[in-house]
Lab assay of single mutants.
Amino acid sequence: MEVRTIKVFTTVDNINLHTQVVDMSMTYGQQFGPTYLDGADVTKIKPHNSHEGKTFYVLPNDDTLRVEAFEYYHTTDPSFLGRYMSALNHTKKWKYPQVNGLTSIKWADNNCYLATALLTLQQIELKFNPPALQDAYYRARAGEAANFCALILAYCNKTVGELGDVRETMSYLFQHANLDSCKRVLNVVCKTCGQQQTTLKGVEAVMYMGTLSYEQFKKGVQIPCTCGKQATKYLVQQESPFVMMSAPPAQYELKHGTFTCASEYTGNYQCGHYKHITSKETLYCIDGALLTKSSEYKGPITDVFYKENSYTTTIK
C-alpha cells in the first residue's frame, strides 16, 4: 500500500517557510505537534488534498525554529505562539472599519479597549522592536488589523473576551517599542525636605499616572512627601515624541487643539466601556464603527496623549 502524501510549508514567522512532505494517514499533531492554519487549530486533523502548498504555523520545537521565533517575536515564552494563534482565530472574524481616516474595530468580545489602543497607536510616533509587531502594525494602518490585535493580546497575556485596560495595554506595548531616546527629568520640591531631581528613561519617561493635564504637570502637581507634608512635583525636561497622561476616570474637559487623542471610560472596574476622542479640525468621538463630532467635550476621561518633541522648564 502506497503512502499518500502532500507537500506543505511549516513556519513560526510566515517569513521562513520549511518544506514538509506530510503523510495523509496521520494527523498534523502526530507529525508536527500543535499546528495552526489561519489561526485555526488543526492539530487533530489529517492532511487533505486542499492543504497542498498551504502554510501551517507550528510551535518552535527545534533550534532553527526557536531562533526564527525569537528573532521575529522577541520572546522565548513557549506558550506565546499558541496564544497568538488562538487569538487570531477570533480577531480574523472582527470587522476593521476605516473611521475618520483611522483603522478602528467594530465592537465584539469586549474589544473596546483594543480599538482605543489601536486608534491611539496610529496617532503617536512609535516604532516597535519585534519585527512581528512592526509588520502587523503597518498592515493594521492599511486596514488589516487582525494579526496586530492578536499579537497585542498575546504580548499582554490576554484572551479574547476578557476586559482590558488601555493604560495597561499601552504599557505592555511600550515595553516592546523603541523608547531608548526618551528621557524625563522631574523635580520634587518640599518646604521641609528641599528639592530632589529624578531622571527617568524609556517607558517611565512617557507615562504618568495622577493627572490628565500635561500643562498642569509642567506647572506642578501636589504629591505627598515622605515627611508627610505636601510637596510639588513638576516637569523639568521632556525628550520624547509623545507623552501619555493618565488618571482614574473623572469628568474632564478636553479643549480642541490642546491634545492629540484621549480615552474615555464609562462604567466601573468590573464592567465598563471605552471610547476614543481625537482632536482634528474639530473633536471626534470614535466608538467602534461609530463616529460623532463636537466642538467641545466633557466626560469621564482616563488617558490623554500629547505630541511632544523637546521641553525644558522655565521655572527657576
Rank of each mutant, 00 (worst) to 15 (best):
Val3Thr: 12
Val3Trp: 13
Thr5Glu: 10
Thr5Leu: 12
Val8Cys: 11
Thr11Lys: 07
Thr11Val: 05
Ile15Asn: 10
His18Ser: 07
His18Arg: 08
Gln20Lys: 14
Gln20Leu: 08
Tyr28Glu: 00
Tyr28His: 05
Gln31Cys: 13
Gly33Arg: 05
Leu37Val: 09
Asp38Val: 11
Asp38Tyr: 09
Gly39Ile: 07
Gly39Ser: 14
Thr43Glu: 13
Ile45Gly: 13
Ile45Arg: 13
Lys46Ile: 11
Pro47Glu: 04
His51Lys: 05
His51Trp: 05
Lys54His: 12
Leu59Gln: 13
Pro60Phe: 08
Pro60Asn: 07
Asp62Lys: 08
Asp63Phe: 08
Thr64Lys: 11
Arg66His: 10
Ala69Gly: 06
Phe70Pro: 04
His74Gly: 09
Thr76Phe: 12
Thr76Ile: 14
Asp77Met: 05
Pro78Trp: 15
Pro78Ser: 09
Phe80Leu: 06
Leu81Asp: 06
Gly82Thr: 14
Met85Arg: 06
Ser86Glu: 15
Ser86Trp: 07
His90Asp: 08
Thr91Ala: 06
Lys92Asp: 05
Lys93Asn: 12
Tyr96Glu: 01
Tyr96Met: 04
Gln98Lys: 11
Asn100Pro: 05
Ile105Gly: 03
Ala108Leu: 05
Asp109Thr: 03
Asn111Phe: 01
Cys112Val: 05
Ala115Cys: 14
Leu119Val: 05
Leu119Thr: 00
Thr120Pro: 05
Leu121Asp: 05
Leu121Pro: 03
Leu121Thr: 11
Gln122Lys: 03
Gln123Arg: 05
Leu126Ser: 03
Leu126His: 03
Lys127Ser: 13
Lys127Glu: 12
Pro130Cys: 08
Pro130Met: 03
Pro131Ser: 03
Ala136Thr: 08
Ala136Ser: 10
Ala140Met: 12
Arg141Met: 13
Ala142Arg: 14
Gly143Glu: 02
Glu144Asn: 12
Ala145Arg: 02
Phe148Trp: 04
Ala150Asp: 02
Ile152Thr: 09
Leu153Gln: 02
Tyr155Asp: 05
Tyr155Ser: 01
Asn157Asp: 12
Thr159His: 15
Val160Leu: 05
Val160Phe: 02
Gly161Thr: 01
Gly161Glu: 05
Leu163Ile: 02
Val166Gln: 05
Arg167Leu: 04
Arg167Phe: 02
Ser171Thr: 13
His176Asn: 07
Ser181Trp: 12
Cys182Pro: 03
Val185Trp: 02
Val185Asp: 05
Val188Cys: 08
Lys191Thr: 13
Thr192Arg: 11
Thr192Tyr: 10
Cys193Thr: 02
Thr199Lys: 08
Leu200Gln: 14
Val203Phe: 13
Val203Tyr: 15
Val203Trp: 14
Glu204Gly: 10
Ala205Arg: 01
Val206Pro: 01
Tyr214Ala: 01
Gln216Trp: 03
Lys219Tyr: 05
Gln222Asp: 07
Pro224Leu: 13
Cys225Ala: 01
Cys227Lys: 01
Gly228Glu: 03
Gln230Ala: 12
Tyr234Ala: 05
Tyr234Gly: 01
Val236Trp: 08
Val236Phe: 06
Gln238Arg: 01
Ser240Phe: 00
Ser240Arg: 00
Ser240Gln: 01
Ser240Pro: 01
Met244Ile: 01
Met245Leu: 08
Ser246Arg: 05
Ser246Glu: 00
Ala250Trp: 05
Ala250Met: 11
Ala250Asp: 11
Leu254Thr: 03
Lys255Thr: 11
Lys255Ala: 10
Thr258Met: 10
Glu264Ile: 14
Glu264Cys: 07
Tyr265Leu: 01
Asn268Val: 08
Cys271Ile: 12
His273Asp: 00
Thr278Ala: 10
Lys280Arg: 14
Leu283Pro: 01
Tyr284Lys: 01
Asp287Phe: 03
Leu290Arg: 13
Leu290Lys: 13
Leu290His: 15
Leu291Tyr: 15
Leu291Asp: 06
Thr292Asp: 08
Thr292His: 13
Lys293Met: 12
Lys293Cys: 13
Ser295Ala: 14
Glu296Trp: 12
Lys298Ala: 13
Pro300Phe: 14
Ile301Asn: 00
Phe305Thr: 04
Phe305Ala: 00
Tyr306Pro: 00
Tyr306Glu: 02
Tyr306Lys: 01
Ser310Cys: 09
Tyr311Leu: 10
Thr312Cys: 11
Ile315Cys: 12
Lys316Glu: 15
